[in-house]
Design a protein around this nucleic acid. Structure first.
Lengths: 193, 193
DNA sequence: GATGCAGTTCTCCTATAGCGAAACGGAGGG
DNA sequence: CCCTCCGTTTCGCTATAGGAGAACTGCATC
């Protein structure tokens, strides 16, 4: 259940960060000063439309105002304990991120031998996205019919709600890191193939 | 700006997925049938409290209902364009993640010369967390008085709401990748009388 | 065609979100 | 001390969110 107090604090904090007065935020967001004050003090529950305008005025996505995360301790995985999976195509994937309840982040390292195509990955749920950074070699990234060639040091971001594939067409091995934030449709489907 | 039509469709879709009737969802969410119908048809704009109850009834986080699917395409940063910052201590940090509105993820690569201590980083807001994977060399990770030695291939996860530091005590260079999910600070403000 | 039933929409009515403007309170400045 | 400025809170008033139940719709079965 949403805590209006937390919501109010969050709005106030974001406004303070930007050095805005109630009046200035009111102008930016087309929400009255009095309403803003009420929301910050949790005196009233704004409608989604009003809260959306407030989020716009603050320059943050609406979701930012209503999500609250969890926290944990330090978890280490030694190189020897890493979860390495060798695939039929000859490529190898290492899942570097420990499983943390409530956090849908995965940090992966993938090694593609020369000429190897790791194939296509399905479109994940809406809202999923991935960061890629190439460590060495050449990576051809395919995102929804769009092909991109990345070399060592290049990084890329894409929304992973479309089909996407990875291939190494070059004569040298390719390795790259992926940070994936995967939204899961309810029912707890399997993790990345 | 939030589109009530989209919101309504989303609620209806989620309800259909679960095979719930308006009445059943009303019972689960403590929101009247008529209000649910109005929201689905975008006839009324619910308050955040009501929408939060609806989200609970559907078993999805509130943010799920208000996040608009990223319509972004691929964003690439070439190695030559990377945002590299050299620090006084002799270490170098490369910010690999393009700035994506609404996503508070950072993907970084850091290079520490032999014997270099990058110093301490402050405690971030509660809920922040980081993944670290060592590419080469030896990294001493300090998290809230706890010291850990990581070598190539090791990865670690920790909640970043405490002071944490990175150092390379070895005779060889050390490089590592960090995926950071940083939450906005909040709650530090003074309470009004 | 009538009857029953499950799901959805419409019809009031009350509580409150939301706005404009006035009132309040603190930090300088005279 | 008194005034002025600036930001915040409070005060009425209006529009609308929200609840309870009636009315409608579609689809079976008799």
């Amino acid at each position: 259940m949403l805590d209006l107090g937390v919501l109010g604090e969050r709005v106030q904090e974001l406004r303070a960060e930007r050095g805005l007065t109630l009046q200035e935020l009111a102008d930016r967001s087309s929400v009255s000063v009095s309403m803003l004050s009420s929301v910050e003090r949790a005196a009233k529950a704004p409608t989604v439309t009003v809260l959306s305008r407030i989020a716009d005025g603050l320059g943050v996505p609406l979701a930012k105002l209503v999500t609250e995360p969890a926290q944990d301790r330090v978890i280490v995985r030694r190189a020897a304990d890493q979860d390495v999976s060798d695939h039929p195509g000859g490529w190898r994937r290492t899942i570097l991120s420990p499983v943390v309840p409530g956090v849908n982040v995965e940090l992966l390292r993938t090694e593609l031998p020369p000429g190897c195509d790791a194939g296509d990955f399905p479109a994940y749920a809406s809202g999923s996205h991935e960061y890629v950074v190439v460590q060495e070699g050449t990576l051809v990234l395919t995102v929804d019919e769009q092909r991109l060639t990345l070399t060592a040091g290049d990084s890329a971001y894409f929304a992973a709600d479309v089909v996407h594939g990875f291939a190494n067409p070059g004569p040298e091995p390719c390795s790259y890191y992926i940070t994936a934030l995967i939204m899961r449709p309810r029912g707890g489907g399997p993790t990345r193939p």
